[in-house]
Design a protein around this nucleic acid. Structure first.
Lengths: 336, 336
DNA sequence: CGTCGTTACTTAACCGGTTCGGCTTATCAG
DNA sequence: CTGATAAGCCGAACCGGTTAAGTAACGACG
């Protein structure tokens, strides 16, 4: 615990604190000779700026906030979030920004967290995930004046800056694929309907199905393996039995696959499966799962870059990150 | 951006800043009447203490650090970490502590992170995961004087405070189970040998096998699904073929299961599988996986509580959190 | 009645940086 | 040789809290 401060460096170099600050921050106001000496002494003493002090005088926290309002269980099960956080970190690390990560139970707690963060000057901005239809967080963030980048479709963003992936295009690709294989009755096992992305996919699903003259059904779940399995069982034992199922995440797809195999049916002979979110799970099952793949790590990184740009004065805008790519594997084939 | 400060509260109440501070912190030095008025005004203005300012004068950051030195890919695939972080957060949230989470590539970067954090006064303490045999981080942390709680066996902790689960007892339970089913040739698909937990399980595995007169083999991997699958293929096509495999995590077990089924073999008829780390994965496969279950969320929470205790002056000590519990499911049966 | 002890404050220093105004000194044009 | 200009540096204020030390008012007590 050496507690090296700028004052100590100033003492050793025989200059004032202010001069040391200029030297260390690469600003004009000191001679090159002095600057070099200061930098050398600072290096010798292994000085690093005290974060709290810098934040206090800069009136910036050099921290971004991310609140996850999902059950601990979902977070553990779904690889999505760790990947997203990993991408965020990769960008923040090089800017020596930090991430304040908070896991809460519901939207109300999430709002409370934003209020607290704003009052404490805890974060310089936030990233908002799991956008809802008519999301109550948007007006609150606006009122708090907390810079935010939303993760989701511009249709949900109400004019606030956002980064999105084109779920409609992805859904079209998935339905074109199963339709071209000859499937006519398609089920969709979706996430919670209040989630904006789910809503958008629901629309896209129905629209594309009409275009392709497919018969459809949609089951909404909470994204969990348990409900994915239950929905699969419902659908498979229903009549007429669909010949293809499109899942909203890979966890439910894997759970569904196990259910189908447990019922003595075969994938892809009896049922074609398509997953969304292509994590390692899709490659370790037997058969491997056809999936809509997108780069979650890159997504998190892109959102972070946009937030950095936003707080340095960039114009807020919607930015399309990518369109999920359909990766065709062993779980899709012509029906029966 | 209201920027409410203590000074503003003082002005409105007609008292000094100091008095306001005493009132807000529930310390003696102000009358009850004044205290009540201050609290009311603070509530009206929605005041919250500026975090940086408090940290600067308290010389504490109210933040704990956690560095994960694993590839982004591993982090995404393994549910373990998100669960651990969730547990940490649950304890920190109520103390209004924060977590500084950093994802780095290797141990050297991890050490650099600790040095930086120590110099910046960025964190009050750290939790150290993935303990190594003769871990190079321990002397560095000691030298930096950074309070730390290690996540791992006391045998690896070199006298530093740690929280651990009893891997030896768990391994004994697993081997007792497969031996009592009648298995005689057992394989272990392990993590990287430099990891302390893996080393301890290796020892326990060999020792228990000798006690039970079992024939053994060990394959080390990097914990990934890919290497878990490859090791499984090696083992299953080798001779004599083991009749039971014990995996070091559930991800590899699931990947191994797919490989075995892809080779036309049946679980549990041809092979008994046992996984470690019982996440949702073990329940969504078909058959479901027998696993050594432990509460990762609770583990993270316990480590955090110990770290909080440590920085408030508790004696450093080793603390056994739990012994993983063998949950018997459909993947284990007498050899076919 | 003078003294002592509390209570209820105020004042000011401090945490460790950043930043602004101003003072020296050197440089250079006129 | 003088006056203007700028580079280089100092001192001090400031960010928003905490806290030690000082002070005024008041009641109790010998």
């Amino acid at each position: 615990m050496s507690r090296v401060t700028i004052k100590e460096i100033a003492r050793r170099c025989g200059v004032s604190q202010g001069a040391v600050s200029y030297a260390l921050n690469n600003r004009p106001g000191v001679s090159e000779a002095t600057r070099a000496r200061v930098l050398q002494v600072a290096a010798e003493l292994e000085w690093a700026p005290n974060r709290a002090a810098r934040q206090l005088s800069a009136a910036r926290s050099e921290t971004f906030g991310l609140v996850l309002a999902r059950s601990a269980q979902t977070l553990i099960e779904e690889p999505y979030f760790m990947g997203f956080v990993g991408g965020v970190e990769s960008v923040l690390a090089e800017k020596s920004y930090a991430l304040a990560l908070q896991v809460v139970a519901d939207l109300d707690e999430e709002l409370a967290t934003y209020r607290k963060w704003a009052a404490e000057r805890r974060v310089d901005g936030v990233m908002v995930v799991d956008l809802r239809v008519a999301d109550p967080r948007l007006p609150v963030l606006r009122k708090l004046g907390l810079p935010a980048v939303l993760v989701g479709d511009p249709a949900l963003a109400d004019g606030m800056p956002c980064v999105w992936t084109d779920g409609t295009a992805a859904m079209n690709a998935a339905l074109d694929h199963v339709a071209s294989l000859g499937h006519r009755v398609i089920a969709r096992i979706a996430g919670p309907p209040e989630y904006g992305d789910v809503w958008i996919r629901d629309q896209a699903f129905e629209l594309a199905a009409r275009r392709l003259s497919l018969e459809t059904r949609i089951h909404h779940t909470d994204y969990s393996a348990a409900q994915g399995a239950a929905a699969t069982r419902d659908i498979v034992t229903g009549s007429p039995r669909p010949t293809a199922i499109i899942y909203d995440n890979d966890l439910m797809a894997v759970a569904g696959l196990a259910v189908i195999q447990g019922l003595g049916l075969s994938v892809p002979d009896d049922l074609t499966l398509v997953a969304w979110d292509d994590s390692a799970l899709c490659r370790i099952t037997h058969p491997t799962l056809t999936a809509l793949s997108h780069n979650i790590v890159g997504y998190g990184a892109e959102v972070t870059r946009r937030l950095l740009a936003l707080i340095s004065g960039a114009q807020p805008q919607a930015h399309l990150y990518s369109t999920p790519l359909l990766i065709i594997r062993d779980s899709s084939a012509p029906p029966g």
